[in-house]
Design a protein around this nucleic acid. Structure first.
Lengths: 119, 119
DNA sequence: CTAAAACCTCACATGGATGTCAGAGGCAAG
DNA sequence: CTTGCCTCTGACATCCATGTGAGGTTTTAG
């Protein structure tokens, strides 16, 4: 498929897909005229990239991890393993924070509700 | 206390504190010479603001919610309640996504570990 | 064959929170 | 009083993912 279809399938803008390629996160096969072509596999990969972005990882970090997903090997696994564990920890901490924040929000909401009914 | 102390106590830069004030998130009492002064209360408030930032809320949104924390009233509670519920929902969704991402990361890590031991 | 739609590259713009610098004034300790 | 640190405002810089537009080629549909 071409880039437009990948974009609509993943919900990611064409611009972003090109950016991912520029950052080394996403590969494409070029037709003789220079147009990018992708396989169905890439749909999954793009959503995975999006997920990592949502987890707060930067392009650089994602670029460092992806090779390990693609082809786990001695060279990359050692360094990447550590990095993944690190990011996993950061993510866990972040989730904990967010849960706490949600509790705070809930308390705020409950407070507002109480106030409203009292009046 | 003055701004420097608030900064070190909260771990937030002086620059950011001034920015919060500019955005209407944080108030200060000015001395005759124009220096900002804060009470201990503000320490808590700053960390709360940080928490909301970490939850992905923007300054605008935070500014819209905070009045409701400060002084719940008929005027603000009605609109803010809805907004809070909305943000609460967004946050919940985000947490769900992150949990999924963490699972993916765990799978990646497990894969790398397996590979390493196999070799 | 032609027109519309999709694609290409390059480059500049945007937004949001923060960093940083300059120039000036404030305040406490020696 | 002076020295050194803190603070003030204002402005410009930065990072990063994305948007946007120009100018040009390719593909597709009629």
């Amino acid at each position: 498929m071409r880039i437009g279809e990948l974009a609509t399938r993943t919900g990611v803008s064409v611009r972003s897909l090109r950016y991912y390629e520029e950052q080394g996160l996403l590969a494409s096969v070029r037709s003789s005229s220079g147009q990018r072509h992708y396989t169905d596999q890439e749909v999954e990969r793009v959503t995975f990239i999006q997920r990592l972005y949502a987890a707060g990882l930067s392009s650089r970090t994602i670029a460092a991890l992806l090779p390990c997903v693609d082809a786990p090997s001695k060279e990359n696994s050692d360094a990447a393993l550590e990095r993944m564990a690190l990011e996993r920890e950061r993510l866990s901490q972040h989730i904990t924070d967010l849960l706490q924040t949600r509790d705070s929000l809930d308390a705020m909401i409950a407070g507002a509700r109480r106030h409203r009914e009292r009046v």
